[in-house]
Amino acid sequence: MFRLVVRRILLMLPLLWLIATATFLLMRLLPGGPFDAEKNLPPEIMANLKAKYHLDRPLLEQYGYYLQRLVKGDLGMSYKYLDRSVNDILSNAFPVSLVLGTVALILAISVGMPLGVVAATRRGTIVDALCMAVSTIGVSLPGFVMGALLIFVFGIWLKILPVALWESGWHIILPAITLACGPTAYIARLTRVSILQVFEMDWVRTARIKGQSYQQTIIKHVLRNALIPIVTVFGPLTAIIITGSFVVEYIYAIPGMGRFFVTAVSNRDYDLVVGTTLIFAVLLIVANTLVDIAYHMLDPRIQVDTL
């Protein structure tokens, strides 16, 4: 397992360099610049701005500057939020997304998996149909519709939960539910399919015939084997949820980092775009590494050294 972790760290470095380089170049290929505004600035002013941020240098030189800072852990300066570094912006925003994402992930797993189990064990019945209907709705309804619905029902009509903002623990509930809806539905469907496949295995039949209780069979034999495909999606799912959702943070006015994935591009905030992309990449790699370790724990036949 230690070798797996070391190998992943070593692989991560060139991968991150590749991602940073590709993003750096792609952003600069986009038409428009960070200082373009409805009111054009005089050329002299624009020249001063570009000089300050080294945007008047050749691309290769700009790239060299950027790499020099990157190896020291400096993700650069924001062109939109003047005098704020990308490190500063993300260190403020990421913990918020982390809290929201973690709550949403726990919700998605704790609701999605039991829903999938119930649907699988009650296959072909009205219960199965209801569970799958709920999960279909969760997948189909866009986040902004779900968010607006929840705000209206619980915030405005029943007035039992806050409409928006990020002031207290109560403020986490609606955004977490909104963020968890899609993943819950997806996990439920995946769990159901996975369990149904494992049900067909001989050892499950044998366990029941030998007198093991229903709950024990599910937990000890079915679930553990059904988890492999489910755990596979946890890697990317974790990275996506924990880095925040633009839609959810936008609707609920939450100061997370999800919004930067969109606004930084439209603002042509070059360094912020690369910074958010790198954070996402690191989280994805770490999450996938943990998933690989989880494979071995779930099924000792899977050797981590071969992953």
């Binding site: 607006a148 209206f152 405005i156 409409v163 928006a164």
Partner: peptide
Amino acid sequence: MVPEQSTAFALYEN
């Protein structure tokens, strides 16, 4: 800093 118009309006109504 509430960027979404309808959310801000809901906050006002609330």
